[in-house]
Nucleic acid binder design. Structure first.
Lengths: 278, 278
DNA sequence: CAGTGGTCTAGACCACGAT
DNA sequence: TCGTGGTCTAGACCACTGA
């Protein structure tokens, strides 16, 4: 999108005297061929031995070029088959739309927030419970729930599957006063955790979401089956509520009732927000 | 965050017979030492030659281990000095808060949306104009502005600097009927593009934001001075407006007036949203 | 100057896929 | 069986940093 002035010879040649490393020149050449559509999504790149011959370099050099493209998320490789151009327009990406998904009528209609996003796109969602334990709050969780570090909270850890793909690792933390009844069950049930919280006499008022980006840890690569060069989103969501008994309409007495932390697979999500201009 | 059961010997040993590659075992060992705090942010890792001796492997193998950590964004290296643990809690990250920044009172107080985010955090923002030209709309731009592909739009491309760091590449596209007067100037002026749009008789009603993640292209790495293992956010924002002359309060006649595309440096931003529960 | 990381070579053995 | 990519070795030359 920025500086497309780079000269790209269509003949595969490299110049060892340039200040750009040879393996990067090879990577640039392949990169541009992919951008130009000479190699389209799903196509195989030339094999390593072919590239060695074409560029007259050692195999290591060719492999570093291919590695650079892989780390960029442009290609993926399979032993015994070849290196292939990745499809960068993931049709199977889930559109996460918090503005819609966190609204009351969805909870009341029995759909949890994730299901709102996924079902509207015809994706089946399955939760895999990894842990449901009481444990001391980390400083991050304590801070967001207004507790002291080390106070006991109920932690629920899950891996969410969207169809055949694990797409989200999440952790829900509830203060013990909130974590009553069905909130301690293995499955939060229709409408999700938020619906159960409201049934227990809390009226949800608002949510804050904050997120940041990073590359996954090796564990996350494994758990989310991430390809090379796929980043993740660190999502931190805090839900706030007031007591529902009094019939005040305002937000006096508002307090955090859930701290929700998730790691989203970057290639399987698209996030949408709607903001009013006033 | 998921499966911390892995056994980590504190003595640096690798087992070539395991199914996990030696370089990954070395990477795991270093990774855990970093997580445990044995190597803190800014600390130097053992040098390559030291790791070669400790693990009894070739230099290439050690370098691949370090490369894996670098691609994860955990460490960075400097020739002649060493490999250092990166500070993962970027104090200099700008908190982008669209919910606040797109509100009218900020425009009326003469602050553009980016400045709202940055100035509240004491960061100086400088825009570097890369291009200001009329050009045919891409299919993406045309689709979001309700135009036909190829119709002429006014494109403004910039690189934004937050302090000493380039942190955002952006492109603003305006239909020609909107792109009048000061909107064609090099600098949009106080309150930014949105303020100018409203002064021209359009009342902004809402914005949609959508974003997705990916690894940067080599160009973006250069333009944003990105370190290894730093992802970017693709942001697509569309502003909608109605004519301000009639005194209808509703949104009849609402139309898109600006398509804004940005690439944000992933390690220099944190995004925050606030969502009401109703 | 010694030590560091960056690049490149020329080979080896292996696991896997297609045939 | 052959071609593919995945790992590893042992060495070389270079550019840069810091004392």
């Amino acid at each position: 999108m920025t500086t497309p002035e780079r000269e790209v010879p269509s003949e595969p040649v490299v110049d060892p005297t340039r200040d750009r490393a040879v393996y990067l020149q090879i990577a640039d050449w392949l990169h541009d061929r992919i951008d130009n559509g000479a190699f389209g999504p799903g196509d195989a790149l030339p094999s390593e031995s072919k590239l060695m011959r074409q560029f007259g370099t050692a195999r290591t050099t060719v492999r570093r070029a291919l590695g650079a493209l892989a780390h960029e998320g442009l290609v993926w490789s399979q032993r015994g088959r070849g290196v292939f151009v990745r499809d960068r327009e993931p049709n199977d990406a889930v559109v996460r739309n918090p503005y819609e998904r966190l609204r009351r009528h969805h909870r009341e209609s029995g759909r949890s927030s994730l299901l709102v996003d996924a079902q509207s796109q015809g994706v089946e969602v399955v939760q895999e419970l990894l842990a449901l334990v009481e444990e001391p709050a980390t400083s991050l969780v304590a801070h967001n729930l207004g507790l002291e570090e080390g106070q006991t909270v109920l932690a629920r850890r899950r891996r969410m599957w969207f169809g055949e793909q694990p797409n989200q690792l999440d952790e829900s933390y509830l203060p013990l006063e909130i974590a009553q009844g069905p909130l301690r069950d293995e499955r939060p049930g229709e409408g999700g955790t938020h619906a159960r919280i409201e049934e227990l006499g809390h009226r949800l008022t608002r949510f804050t979401e904050e997120f940041s980006l990073r590359m996954p840890t090796p564990d996350e690569v494994h758990m989310l089956r991430l390809g090379d060069g796929v980043p993740v989103v660190d999502l931190l969501q805090v839900a706030y509520a007031v007591a529902a008994d009094g019939n005040r309409a305002g937000r006096e007495g508002e307090r955090p009732v859930e701290c929700f932390i998730a790691v989203l697979a970057g290639d399987k999500h698209r996030l949408e927000y709607r903001i009013d201009a006033e």
